[in-house]
Design a binder for these strands. Sequence first.
RNA 1: GCGACCGUAGUUCAGUGGUAGAGCGCUGGUUUGUGGUACCAGUUGUCGCGGGUUCGAAUCCCGUCGGUCGCCCCA
Length: 436
Amino acid sequence: MIPVTKGMRDFYPADYRVQEWLFSIFRKASSLSGFEYYDCPVVEAEELYVRKAGEEITDQLYTFEDKSNRKLALRPEMTPSLARMVIQKYKEYPGKIKWTSIPQCFRYERMTRGRKREHYQWNLDYLGEKSMMAELEIIATAIHAFELMGLSSENVKLRISNRKLLSDLLLGLGVAEDQVLGVFLSIDKLGKIKDDQIIELLVKAGLDTDLASKVLDVVYLKDLEKVKESIDACGASIEGYTEIQELFSLLTNYGYSDYIEFDFSIVRGLAYYTGTVFEFFDARRSLRAIAGGGRYDNLIQNLADVDLSEKAKGSISKEAVGFGFGDVVIFELLKDLKLLPELNLEMDYYLIPFSEDEVAYLLPIVAKLRKQGFTAEMHYPPQKPKKMFEMASKRGAKNGIIAGSMELEKKHLKVKNFKTREETEVRFSDFMESIS
RNA sequence: GCGACCGUAGUUCAGUGGUAGAGCGCUGGUUUGUGGUACCAGUUGUCGCGGGUUCGAAUCCCGUCGGUCGCCCCA
């Protein structure tokens, strides 16, 4: 027997029902906020990913050559494809874009809890909006989805930072511009390794010990007002602060203040985020980040390999906020919290013919029921009644339609309500009439 | 890449050197026109794979593949 490929998942009907439940929440939250669906091939040119992040992601890429020696890859994430689609038709999309999708993405990487080599990742992207309204729309939609799953601010927290703010502050404190990147890397380790080790990393990044401990003190700030004081104290630029301040006020006004925490240790990938960065965590912090995203104002332009501001003259703005939400970690959390619904098969009518004669007799009923929008299935081939009734309850049938030689002879049907066990005998023609 | 634990029936698992087991499921029966709930009986195996030790291996050893978790890495 050939087993399922390592890191990939099978979805048996029971699993698929749960998956569908989750996706229906993603779709509902998306459409309620006005996001439009899009999709594209799982297979893309390898180049689309190589360009973006360099060697690291190439290692994790599933790549292959087709029979014409095209170098192709399975998509590891959706954003480059989105960018490709937008760039391809930038003249058709002059305004803002609010798009959503649930692509299956692939990464060849080591597996740990909550991470497989394949997952479905709900994406929200808001393009062409400079203000924090873009962040708000995406974050609010995501939180709405959490709430539709039965989660609340007691289970889920959103940690927000802003890369512009952090770099403003670092520069104000005296960190040299070419050291900022190294400092980001070190701060990313906050909470993962000990403070002395972080100091060491900071020193390695070129800071002197004094500055390093000053930086460490600052990044531990959880209170935006204190952050403001630090900015004022060192005369740093206030741009990043203004952004995050605005975002917090928007989220509070929206009614989601219970979810949000300011946290400098949220850095995320250095590759393309330019401003806001955020990650959702479970409140107990027992799992890795559930979802995350941020502002990537330059990515589309970089990927386009053309200067859109020149070529398209404002046809599409390069501003972008994106968000990804994988299905694997959230399933872990929902399982832990026992919030996964028990989804059983449901069916309106199960038809029970006692012999082949009744099979023919009942076929028009099945056809009509289905055409009228009822879920209906006929037991076939006819078996012992016990067997057939057992199957009816296994299939989750609410009603049964039973026909044997007696019913056939009288041109009748027996309609049974499986819940109340009540049976009524009706004329075949009357039943057909009643479902018209 | 490193480490720990695991892999036995369709499934969940027990079995730690001496004849391969249980629950659930499945099949049949109690009831040849009535289920979801009872009772009775039956069924299911390359013990992941390959090699080794042994009179004898599911059990011990080595390798390998797969799984789970942690570390590293990454987001």
